[in-house]
């Protein structure tokens, strides 16, 4: 399968690979996908007092499109408020990366990862 240039760029030079301290109150962690399905994404956000995502990190087990989708997602959510980040759609990710139909699930997973990270952050703060 031929990958788009943008997928190749994100795959070869992934942005924001790494981990944040999941126990930190300011950090929200989303873990989505399943090893048996061939892709797992972990996306983390660090939110400041103004409710802005000041840092984001990811780790992904999956194909090039999955890695690229999560890399792009971290790039896009940085600097956004939680509400803004919540509006990012899988279709935008898929379109930006020119994903073929068979790879659309990668972009859906990236959207799920963003939502899961935000939810985790909100849950922590509701409890606190």
């Amino acid at each position: 399968m031929a990958y788009s240039e943008k997928v190749i760029d994100h795959y070869e030079n992934p942005r924001n690979v790494g981990a944040l301290d999941a126990k930190d109150e300011a950090v929200g962690t989303g873990l989505v996908g399943a090893p048996a399905c061939g892709d797992v994404m972990k996306l983390q956000i660090k939110v400041n007092d103004q409710g802005v995502i000041e840092d984001a990190k990811f780790k992904t087990f999956g194909c090039g499109s999955a890695i690229a989708s999560s890399s792009l997602a971290t790039e896009w959510i940085k600097g956004k408020t939680l509400d803004q980040a919540n509006t990012i759609k899988n279709t935008e990710i898929a379109q930006h990366l020119s994903l073929p139909p068979v790879k659309l699930h990668c972009s859906m997973l990236a959207e799920d990862a963003i939502r899961a990270a935000i939810q985790d952050y909100k849950q922590k703060h509701r409890a606190a």
């Binding site: 795959y11 087990f61 999956g62 194909c63 090039g64 999955a66």
Partner: peptide, 11 residues
């Protein structure tokens, strides 16, 4: 282990 095959092939 822990590296997806298609992702690896791309690399």
């Amino acid at each position: 282990a822990h590296v997806e095959g298609e992702g690896l092939m791309m690399g």
